[in-house]
């Protein structure tokens, strides 16, 4: 397996694969963060999570089109506005969905799963009717394209670096909101003991709605970031939903650290394996390993003790 490569080549390969893995890791973390908040904090399975992501991607695409058409001078900075809009759009849709659909089903988690799957079908068809079935791509501003040479054999893409920076920023923001802000304390109180949280005056319904909205909003940002790496199509969300769920479950629901650790493990394992095996076998082996580990340790890598 290693015989054909010199030591320097191998080092470069590992560095490049590790970098590719880091980009995948960033995308996984972004996707999984929203899900970890919704699933971990609320116990709701949102199968339409991928479609919220795609909503963010389409919002980004629309913003790009508008800027190209009317504000070409500001094109360099459109991405930041696009991400903000993606967050707001996905978050607003999320809160609407929570209000109309999810809140009636808190006691029936398996039924939530089916209902949100139905929602995902409707959203997919809506995207297809509005934006067409073809994939759309986003042109990046000049400064985000190209790559940086580190050494002769190693180079890194700038958009990859941007995604990583973005992921770090959002993760820190979420950690701050959940663990240090007043609202985050309320969320955690509701998770740990819903009845008592209500008894001390926390409006649990409102907390639920904003939590769901926050999770969906982050999915929107993830979709926005995703347009930098891949193209967007109406059904793209479905491709990632299983991976994302496994990241969250593997990490241990309700644990942000767990989510990040598991996203790191899974993405690195997959991108390293991908170099030596075919892409599909790498995916199969990684998924099988996760399922296997989950059978041995059903609660995931990191767990939080919760009074049920």
């Amino acid at each position: 397996m290693f015989g054909d490569y010199s030591v320097g080549d191998l080092g470069a390969i590992f560095a490049m694969q590790a970098f590719a893995g880091l980009i995948l890791f960033s995308v996984f973390v972004l996707m999984a963060l929203g899900l970890a908040i919704i699933f971990g904090q609320m116990g709701v399975i949102n199968m339409a999570h991928g479609e919220f992501m795609i909503l963010g991607a389409y919002v980004t695409w629309m913003t790009k089109t508008v800027f190209q058409e009317y504000l070409p001078s500001l094109f360099a900075g459109y991405f930041f506005l696009a991400m903000a809009l993606a967050f707001v759009a996905a978050g607003a849709l999320g809160m609407l969905v929570e209000w109309t659909l999810i809140r009636h089903l808190y006691r029936r988690p398996l039924d939530t799963l089916l209902a949100t799957w139905g929602l995902s079908l409707i959203l997919q068809q809506a995207y297809r009717s509005i934006f067409g079935a073809r994939e759309v791509g986003v042109e990046l501003p000049e400064w985000m394209m190209g790559s940086k040479h580190i050494t002769d054999t190693i180079e890194v893409q700038i958009n990859g670096l941007f995604v990583m920076a973005l992921t770090t920023l959002i993760t820190c923001a979420v950690a701050y909101i959940i663990y240090w802000s007043r609202w985050g304390r309320q969320v955690r109180a509701v998770v740990q003991n819903r009845v008592m949280a209500g008894a001390v005056g926390i409006n649990t319904e409102k907390v639920d709605r904003y939590t769901f909205g926050l999770g969906c909003g982050i999915a929107g940002v993830a979709g926005s970031a995703f347009t930098m790496i891949g193209s967007t199509s109406p059904t793209a969300g479905q491709l990632y939903i299983v991976d994302t769920f496994l990241v969250v479950v593997f990490g241990g629901a309700a644990s942000l650290v767990g989510t990040i650790a598991s996203a790191f493990t899974i993405s690195q394992a997959r991108s390293t394996l991908e170099f030596f095996l075919s892409g599909s076998m790498a995916q199969v082996l990684t998924l099988l390993a996760i399922v296997g580990i989950l059978m041995l340790r059903p609660q995931g890598l990191f767990t939080l003790k919760v009074r049920k």
Binding site: L114, G118, L121, I122, R128
Partner: peptide, 12 residues
């Protein structure tokens, strides 16, 4: 697909 999605939600 709209119909199928609505069916999922309605049944649940």
């Amino acid at each position: 697909l709209f119909g199928l999605g609505a069916l999922f939600i309605a049944v649940v």
